[in-house]
Computed example of a mutant assay.
Amino acid sequence: MYGWIWRHLPGNVWVKALLSLLLVLVVVYVLFQYVFPWAEPLLPFNDVTVDGQ
């Protein structure tokens, strides 16, 4: 998959590296801004089973 992305990016090695970094940053931004907040209520992290004694 990464090879396919690398081959389809335009430019030389430095341009491809910069575009790859930009793509990674965009994916991380989308995950933190939209995907994780949407999925957080569905995850059982707040279901505590320890009694407060």
Rank of each mutant, 00 (worst) to 15 (best):
V27N: 05
L43T: 01
P10K: 03
L9P: 01
P37V: 01
V27F: 12
V28H: 06
L23W: 08
S20C: 15
G52C: 14
A17M: 12
V13P: 05
Q53P: 12
E40W: 10
Q53E: 10
T49C: 06
D51N: 11
N46P: 00
T49W: 14
F36G: 00
D47N: 10
M1H: 13
E40M: 13
L31V: 13
L19E: 00
T49A: 11
V35S: 03
T49E: 14
L19S: 00
P37M: 01
Y34V: 12
W4F: 11
G11K: 01
Y34A: 11
V28M: 15
L25R: 03
E40V: 09
V15E: 13
Q53R: 13
F32W: 06
M1D: 14
S20L: 14
V50T: 10
V24A: 10
L42Y: 13
D51L: 13
R7S: 08
L21A: 14
V27A: 07
W6H: 09
V48H: 14
T49Q: 09
L9M: 05
V15I: 12
L18P: 01
Y34L: 08
W6E: 07
L31S: 15
G3M: 05
L23T: 05
P44N: 03
A39W: 05
L23Y: 08
L18A: 09
